[in-house]
Design a protein around this nucleic acid. Structure first.
Lengths: 339, 339
DNA sequence: AGAGATGGTGACAACGTTGTCAAGATTCGG
DNA sequence: CCGAATCTTGACAACGTTGTCACCATCTCT
């Protein structure tokens, strides 16, 4: 900027005015400055600018994994809104590791992002309290934080969705419904378990712990649990799978792609096991899988809108939004138990 | 930092030394400074730091759409390597819009990112030349840039993969193979078309433009083109689909999920149309779709490694990496034409 | 013609760091 | 006990902007 000023024969401040389209610059002077900018290939240094002005016009987004379609949809929605607000986005994946989440968040805070959207991993978010007190706005998405600052939160109706899905299976005559999900330490999994139990209780059915399999969402764990379930003396006739990854892993296990499966079980398209999954996933329609659909894009949008409302000065107590879910009937959830 | 210095009764510079773990600070002084930092909840302002030091320890990543599984895998790989290098990542989706790409890239440059990884949209990247000359390292991924600076590029073997896929269908007796892909203005689509044509030529078959359908990857366009193809007097007995999105759209069209399809065509699992798709996608294994697999994570990693090698001072002419593809046989590509 | 308003411009400090250099205190070798 | 080496500390400028204030030249109005 100094160089531009020198080249145009004006003061630093005048260049600044031209660059920022501030009024009160003579047209011919502005012309000269523009020419100098052009010929020197000058580009304003936004780092210095934000240092001076206090706002960085950037936000941080910490999710579990960008590569997971659920979070990448959310991510895209956040990005779009941020761009419309003239804001850039730092993205980071925590991989469900609280330490990495903390590292990312603190790095974003050190960069003085204006706000944060966080899918919290782990249970302790006290480390955020001083940052929030220092004026960084935070919104939690998908899950509420553990111990930590009171902040806006957007979740979906996990329990309600799981209840609906379980009721759907019950309505089709199933009495032995297995529940496969993430580890119960994860909020969404715990809530979905709650919904599942509520539906059973409302139908007057007992809660059988032997039908519940929660843990890591990887193929091996799901395969092992599924094998155990299908070998029970009184095996389930239906499965409720607690998220997209687990639904796919379950289908893969049933199809035999992932290794040997009990012979009593044919592939899902022909077999008798009914399935309802939480989360819609890309070709669930092609596979004919009935799901409880939630809206990751809507969640990202809601979180970003909440954040930018706070950034533009809206005060008031922290809000908690709960987005609805929707049952999408496609066939896999409507099979009746074999007699 | 000033406040911390005052609270600890030391000079600014000493606090700086403590914060940065520089040697030559008395242990007891450091102790006092740490206490002051703790009690004031001080966090270093990395914006000011990077202004002073010249390096921002951040890179910009511009892809077509984070929500596309191909790019989200790439994105995650870039993020992981960047984090390991102590670098944060600005992510932006261009949505295949050259203007938006330009806007994002220039915003990143104004923030003085150290480097850029770009999946170029459009054909004109001259706007990048001054930035590259100003010292911002750039690596192109998935596609080479149009007109613009000479920079490192990582692509996959698009033509080779398409040739392999087409040859696979030819080897199973197909003579009428349709080619459905992205618009030919997109590099990858053009290259894959080239591979397809090479395979036909090598087999001594004519190139029939009527069997080629390129355009937007949305469901409606694919459905319309597919309908046209299957209504031909001499319809294709096999399809080669040019990317993940188009493969899924094609399957959806064939399955009838997306609207009416010609009755001569049953759903893919039962029907006679053989399919090979470029790009593996999440449950292609469940659907039994034979694909030409490429490795988005490997591509992201290669691009990031190339970038960080440049950032650590490696010079030399721009490199062009071509990653291999792999045929994954799953059933849909091995159906023989009906007699 | 003189007082006041207006438009254009610039000097300077400040944002929060870090690099450079110098100075005081301490230790060591002879 | 003296000079040199070492350790610890601090003053100050600089990074590239922008906000504040002041200045000068024109106008405008009485």
């Amino acid at each position: 900027m100094n160089d531009v000023a020198a080249a145009a024969g004006v003061a630093l401040k005048t260049v600044s005015r031209v660059v920022n389209n501030e009024p009160g610059v003579n047209a011919s002077t502005a012309e000269r400055v523009h020419a100098a900018i052009e010929s020197l290939g000058y580009r304003r240094n936004d780092g210095a600018r934000t240092l001076r002005r206090g706002r960085t016009a950037s936000i941080g987004l910490v999710i579990e994994d960008v590569a997971d379609p659920f979070y990448s949809g959310l991510s895209r929605a956040v990005e779009d809104i941020a761009l419309a607000e003239g804001c850039l986005v730092f993205t980071g994946s925590s991989g469900e590791d609280p330490a990495r989440e903390r590292e990312l968040v603190l790095a974003f805070c050190a960069r003085r992002v204006d706000g944060l959207i966080i899918v919290p991993a782990g249970t302790d978010h006290d480390y955020l309290t001083p940052e929030v007190e220092a004026g960084i706005a935070a919104v939690f998405a998908d899950r509420p934080p553990g111990a930590g600052p009171d902040a806006d939160t957007v979740v979906c109706d996990n329990a309600g969705g799981a209840r609906t899905g379980t009721e759907h299976l019950l309505a089709h005559g199933h009495r032995r419904i297995a529940f496969l999900a993430d580890a119960p330490s994860i909020f969404t999994a715990a809530e979905r378990l709650r919904g599942y139990r509520e539906a059973l209780a409302a139908a007057g059915l007992p809660y059988d712990e032997g039908l519940v399999a929660m843990g890591r969402p990887d193929q091996a764990r799901v395969l092992a649990d599924l094998r155990r379930l299908l070998r029970l003396a009184d095996p389930p006739t239906a499965l409720f799978t607690g998220n997209g990854q687990i639904t796919v892993a379950t289908l893969r296990a049933l199809a035999g792609t992932a290794g040997p499966v009990p012979t009593r079980q044919a592939p899902p398209s022909a077999g008798p096991v009914a399935i309802v999954g939480f989360d819609d996933f890309e070709p669930a329609d092609l596979l004919g899988i009935t799901v409880i659909e939630q809206d990751p894009v809507g969640m990202g949008r809601a979180a970003a809108e909440l954040l930018f409302r706070r950034l533009s000065g809206e005060s008031g107590p922290p809000q908690r939004l709960e987005l609805p879910t929707r049952l999408v009937v496609r066939g896999s959830g409507e099979r009746r138990p074999l007699p």
